[in-house]
Amino acid sequence: MKETLTGLVAVAGAAFMLIASVGILRMPDFYLRMQAAAKAGTLGILCIVVATGATLGSLSALLHAFLASLFFLLTTPIAAHLLGRAAYLSGIRPRVLEDELAGRYHPATHALGSDRAPDAPETRSAGAS
């Protein structure tokens, strides 16, 4: 009974990761791909971690599983945030209805204004488009 249950959790997690992978292939622009990959992927790997911990069953396995879930919950947002920002700065334009971030970055310093592009000391305006 317990084995079937953990097996089902593992299969559900794997299915979520498969969907994330298909999403990464199918989505039309970078930001949508990232949404599909990062989120469904996290849920999938968490399911698999839980299933592994439950299957092994020993205390150190459960501790491993707990630490691993904590690790994934902490690192996924950081990686997603950094990549999203870097991609936007490198000039990948999102396919969106409306982009309220457009033109708010100072081109040289990357300072970000809250309602318009910030004034910054005169520097060469090279780099980001």
């Binding site: 990232m34 949404q35 990062a38 989120k39 996924t76 945030h81 999203g84 970000l112």
Partner: peptide, 11 residues
């Protein structure tokens, strides 16, 4: 960032 469908880009 963990909620699917929303992705914070920058502050």
């Amino acid at each position: 960032a963990l909620t699917p469908g929303t992705l914070p880009l920058d502050v």
